[in-house]
Amino acid sequence: MIDRLSDDGIDVRVEAGIARITLDRPAAGNAITLPVAMALMRAAIRCETDPSIRCVIMTGRGRLFCAGGDVPTIADAGAGRAPMLAELIGVLHVAIERLSAMPKPLITLINGPAAGAGFSLAMLGDLVLSARSAHFTAAYGAIGLTADGGLSWLLPRLVGLRRAQEIVLTNRRISALEAETIGLVTRVVEDDALAEEGNKLAEQLAGGATRALGAARALLRDSFDTGLEAQLNQEQRSMVLAGGSAECAEGLQAFLAKRPANFKGI
């Protein structure tokens, strides 16, 4: 059974434990307006809180993944631009925080160019598959703005400070192949294989020990902000909690019985 909802430029489909969030303003390059940001926030909350959802895919419809903020809307705000941006970015950041912190893996499928906040959304995935035709641009400096969507946090962690400085300050376009080489994306695939490869990954993750995967996701995310001793303590606490779970019991029983584990049945 497919549970589907279209909401202000965001299409959400849930099937077999996998939620697919599609940025759905193809005529506008899937650019983000306040209604789109609010719809994405609602989708993120749904993915975080719905226990039937075990893995999340995010992608775009049409030629672009996401062009970032909707530039005409920003320009039309005139003297009200600062408060408009405060509201828009505040809502978008709630969505990003939810997608980042949810105890479920996130796959981003980059179907085309990603710029500005679209660049940030692209990198948010635990696994990032990029179509060969896609490319990435920071874009903010060209219109006199600075990074949002977590770009200034994500980019240095993925590619290092020096390379991040060049990407943001020069607005240089990064091809999909270069993005793979420098660690921006997990893997480049042919355009017509992107959806299929993404679905394979999602099915694998949705069939896994999702609570353990969620805890591992949190450990990896937090590791940049903790020292070794603190991280070791967090690993111990996480392992102990996982060790007492039904997932671990099923995994161990399946391993000893030489059968596939049935984590979805828990």
Rank of each mutant, 00 (worst) to 15 (best):
V94N: 09
L213I: 04
A164I: 07
P83F: 02
L205W: 14
S238Q: 13
I18R: 00
A67W: 00
L158Q: 01
G160Q: 07
T186L: 09
G244L: 02
F255Y: 13
E166C: 00
A142H: 12
M102K: 06
E180V: 08
G227A: 09
N199P: 00
A31E: 05
R157D: 04
V159M: 00
A164Q: 10
G141Y: 06
A39S: 14
G90D: 09
G243T: 10
G150A: 03
V36R: 10
F263D: 04
L228K: 08
V159E: 01
R237W: 02
E235V: 12
D191H: 07
L169M: 12
S130L: 05
I45T: 12
D7A: 03
C55I: 03
E15V: 06
I45V: 12
G207V: 11
I167H: 03
A206K: 02
G69P: 01
Q253I: 05
V12L: 15
A206H: 02
H135E: 14
R172P: 00
N30M: 00
D50A: 11
D76F: 05
A27Y: 06
A43Y: 06
R211C: 05
E229L: 10
L23D: 01
L151M: 12
S245D: 09
G62V: 00
E97C: 05
D222V: 14
G116M: 04
A39I: 07
N171A: 14
P105G: 12
G198H: 07
G150W: 04
L121K: 02
L205C: 04
A79M: 10
A28D: 15
D11Q: 11
Q165R: 12
L256F: 11
S238L: 11
K104H: 12
E15G: 01
A139M: 11
R157I: 02
C47V: 12
P105R: 14
A122Q: 05
A131R: 02
G80W: 06
G78K: 08
L184W: 00
E190N: 07
V159L: 00
R20H: 09
D192T: 09
A257I: 05
E190F: 04
G69V: 13
E235T: 07
F119V: 08
V94I: 14
V91G: 07
S52H: 10
S120D: 13
P113T: 08
E180L: 06
